[in-house]
């Protein structure tokens, strides 16, 4: 059963236009600042510095797994929210059954969320 919804790829032309304008603005601004700004290069000026403290080591340090854990949990809940878009658009047509369906879905994920909180996975030791 397909709903009679009319939409064509050409409806997305304004969004494409927005992308072009945004990208064009960035490129033009970067280009212009490079062209217009004065350039004085010296060894001291081009050196990396951090709040006046002398540089120690380099930035390519392997970093903690804790960030990765937070990121992967974010992705999982992100995917959960994605499923809510088609549900929310059809909320009226699906009625009570649709509501119960989504409640089951979210219920399973809430169990996971409870597990995460209980395990203290989001705590930053």
């Amino acid at each position: 059963m397909l709903l009679a919804v009319q939409s064509t790829p050409l409806d997305f032309l304004p969004i494409a236009l927005m992308f072009v304008v945004a990208l064009g603005f960035v490129v033009i601004m970067l280009f212009l600042t490079h062209q217009l700004g004065p350039k004085k290069k010296s060894k001291v000026k081009l050196e990396t510095f951090e709040c006046g403290i002398e540089v120690q080591g380099n930035a390519r340090l392997p970093f903690s797994i804790k960030y990765f854990l937070v990121a992967i949990l974010f992705v999982l809940f992100d995917v959960e929210v994605i499923f809510m878009y088609p549900w929310a658009v059809n909320f009226k047509q699906l009625g009570l059954i649709g509501f119960v369906e989504m409640l089951t879905f979210v219920g399973f994920l809430l169990v996971g969320f409870y597990y995460i909180l209980k395990k203290g996975a989001l705590k930053w030791e």
Binding site: M1, L2, L3, A4, V5, Q6, S7, T8, F83, Y85, P86, W87, V89, N90, Q93, L94, G98, E101
Partner: peptide
């Protein structure tokens, strides 16, 4: 062509 729109996708999915 309207099969990929979000309304139809939601109907099919749920």
């Amino acid at each position: 062509a309207s099969i990929g729109l979000i309304e139809n996708l939601g109907q099919t999915l749920f």
